[in-house]
Design a protein around this nucleic acid. Structure first.
Length: 259
DNA sequence: ATGACACGCCGAGCGTGA
């Protein structure tokens, strides 16, 4: 029997600005693995100590101001790799792969895309295709693999608060859906959709539109897994509570529990 | 239709996010 495993994914929009929120949340919930995105801090300045004091190993892959990911693990990491496995370095720090308890866990901050048709949008599409190629080269769909993070794509109409309004807009275009489907076709399942089929569950709410209060959000933070982990997945929840705290991240924590 | 907030940049507006 494998050891139970809880994995949290949270785009914190700066770990230094959100340190109190994250520490409070971890103190109360203590997930086994914590995948943070948009840490926005150089590795040498990452606030490691308070997390170590909560019993976590701290693994970081960051840079100045833009992007950045970090993965905290209660158990000892068996393997750690930042960035793409091979080839040209990425433009920004967006990938951290950590193997824990025999499970390969990818922590992703997928490029936002900025605007349709621009260079950043092409980068987003190419980035997701490159990730699929990396999975083909380094993993198998029969091994325990979990991919979490901010995907910056709402998969279908249930995942946006106003589907008609979002058709063809950034985060909800055919091109983005196509590259996401290509990634999933490696042999992944959207763990949230194993358990919940209705819409209205979101992971991000716009600061500017009072989105949280109106429950007008998007589900763009995801947990994907291969079959051995799909079998073990008991639930995926979006915890809205920290979004109501003082000066919150615009994303909420997403927690997946595996038996 | 557009912009709305929040962040880090080092010291002010600006680029970026989604």
């Amino acid at each position: 029997m494998p050891t139970p495993l809880s994995i949290m994914s949270w785009n914190v929009n700066s770990i230094r600005a959100r340190l109190d929120h994250v520490l409070t949340y971890l103190y109360d919930n203590a997930p086994d693995v914590v995948c943070l995105q948009e840490t926005k801090v150089e590795d040498k300045l990452f606030p490691r100590v308070p997390f170590m004091e909560l019993g976590y190993e701290v693994h970081v892959h960051g840079g100045k101001a833009l992007a950045g990911v970090a993965t905290l693990t209660k158990a000892k990491a068996e393997e750690v790799r930042g960035g793409f496995a091979e080839g040209e370095p990425d433009r920004h720090p967006r990938i951290l792969m950590v193997r824990v308890q025999g499970v390969r866990i990818y922590n992703l901050y997928v490029p936002n895309g900025t605007e349709l048709g621009g260079d950043a949008f092409a980068y987003k599409l190419a980035w997701l295709r490159r990730l699929r190629a990396e999975l083909d080269a380094t993993c198998s769909p029969t091994e325990p693999l979990v991919i979490v993070g901010d995907f910056n794509i709402a998969p279908d109409e249930r995942d946006v608060f106003d589907a008609e309004r979002f058709v063809g807009r950034l985060l909800f275009t055919d091109e983005e859906h196509e590259v996401l489907a290509n990634l999933v076709a490696f042999g992944l399942r959207d763990c949230f959709r194993l358990h919940v089929s209705e819409g209205g569950h979101y992971s991000w709410y716009d600061y500017r539109t009072n989105g949280f209060e109106l429950n007008e959000g998007l589900r763009i933070d995801h947990v994907y897994a291969t079959a051995p982990m799909v079998e073990r997945c008991e639930e995926v929840i979006h915890d809205r509570k920290p979004r109501s705290w003082e000066v919150p991240s615009d994303h909420v924590p997403v927690i997946a529990r595996f038996s």
